[in-house]
Design a protein around this nucleic acid. Structure first.
Lengths: 218, 218
DNA sequence: TGTACATCAGTGAACGCGCGTTCACTGATGTAC
DNA sequence: TGTACATCAGTGAACGCGCGTTCACTGATGTAC
């Protein structure tokens, strides 16, 4: 059981180390630290303290503090994807294709914004500066329950837009960068930046206007 | 001479401490550190080292490391404003009002993006998370040469859009949040985020498409 | 079924690092007489 | 014009902190015979 996913799924082949799921416990402690304080709060010693082990015990499971942080980042991205999926799941499935496609793009966007507001620390961790390019591994998946990561979920929603004839196919390439930028920018300004006090209360409304802009502008 | 602006402007009244412009030297060292390494690189001891003074000498001019960082942030914001102004200055002044207004908004946006790419460290410092809300002081102005800070420059450009009849007045309130979000998001994704290698080369093109989207969507 | 052994997860102690910040000081300057 | 003095920018030394990381170890477990 060294992955944070379904404990009973892994067969006896090569998994299940001695007696510890220490890796899992450390990762969860790291996630909790990130939730509360963002990437800088992911401190190796504090994670081991919470796990009740000696500081150096972590080195049996992570190459160092950075490896732990990367695993936490992957988990945070996975949580972003889950938030998007949750938003998508609220859509009435019997919508006409064009409306469903538009609503899907909006749902992806508002899931993203909702996550940034509700899970600020994890959001900041997911998109923190890093020397290494984050990528999914078996140990550290970045996808949500549905198997797609945030970027892929957005891409899929945009594909629906094209399939439904709402967006001309020639505009499709690169469109995720534009949509993502808009939503990411608002999230960052509210979460980290100077807009928090200004926008905070009107967030829902501003978010919807931003999504209007993206919809029209794409 | 304890402000970084025109040394000869201040009269003899209450200015000019003993023999040091140490405050200025420390601030400039801090800016240089931020340029190279972003907000975390603004380290009090390193600034004093570069200034050739003892570490605690800084406390004559800044309340502590955070005060130095805030001063550096203000300078970074001022530099953003300057970049926007530089972009605005390239516009042909004899454009019809509607075109000039549109071009102004674009210029503000591309100045912002250009600055983020060219002065990544300062950009990250300007918009870094901070407990204190940054605000201009006499000691630490956030405006560019023209006297407006980045947010005000954007606001002024949008006002032109309304004055020229390009944007309906009822859409004006809050429009800076939408425009800023879009541009800020792209900047952050390229500067900090996972999009750097993906977008890097096509940055100019993606930036223009983003500004198209904003123009249409507003 | 019982025993010896290899494995390796977790221990205990220690390291060097660089940071921000404090204290009591010193000594060059500007000013009052 | 000369002298005593107050000011206060910068000094020197030290502090406690928490971090990531290393070393040689110990002792519970699974496995081979």
């Amino acid at each position: 059981m060294n992955t944070p996913t379904a404990p009973s799924a892994a067969p006896a082949v090569r998994s299940t180390y001695r007696h510890g799921d220490l890796r899992r416990v450390l990762l969860e402690a790291g996630i909790e630290l990130a939730r509360k304080g963002g990437p800088d709060a992911v401190v190796l010693r504090e994670a081991t303290r919470r796990a009740g082990v000696a500081p150096n015990a972590a080195y049996r499971h992570f190459a160092g503090r950075d490896a732990l942080l990367q695993a936490v980042r992957a988990a945070a991205l996975s949580a972003v994807a889950a938030a998007m999926e949750a938003e998508l799941a609220t859509l009435p499935p019997d919508l006409p294709p064009a409306d469903l496609a538009r609503a899907s793009v909006r749902a992806v966007g508002s899931g993203y914004l909702r996550f940034a507001l509700l899970e600020t620390g994890l959001f900041r961790t997911a998109f923190a500066r890093s020397d290494v390019l984050i990528q999914a591994t078996h140990e550290a998946p970045t996808a949500g329950p549905g198997g797609l990561n945030p970027f892929e979920l957005l891409g899929a929603a945009l594909d629906k837009l094209v399939a439904a004839g709402v967006m001309p196919p020639e505009r499709r390439p690169g469109a995720e960068f534009l949509a993502w930028s808009a939503v990411h920018g608002l999230a960052m300004l509210v979460v980290d930046g100077p807009l928090a006090p200004v926008i905070g209360p009107q967030m829902e409304q501003v978010g919807q206007r931003l999504l209007d802009m993206v919809e029209k502008g794409l």
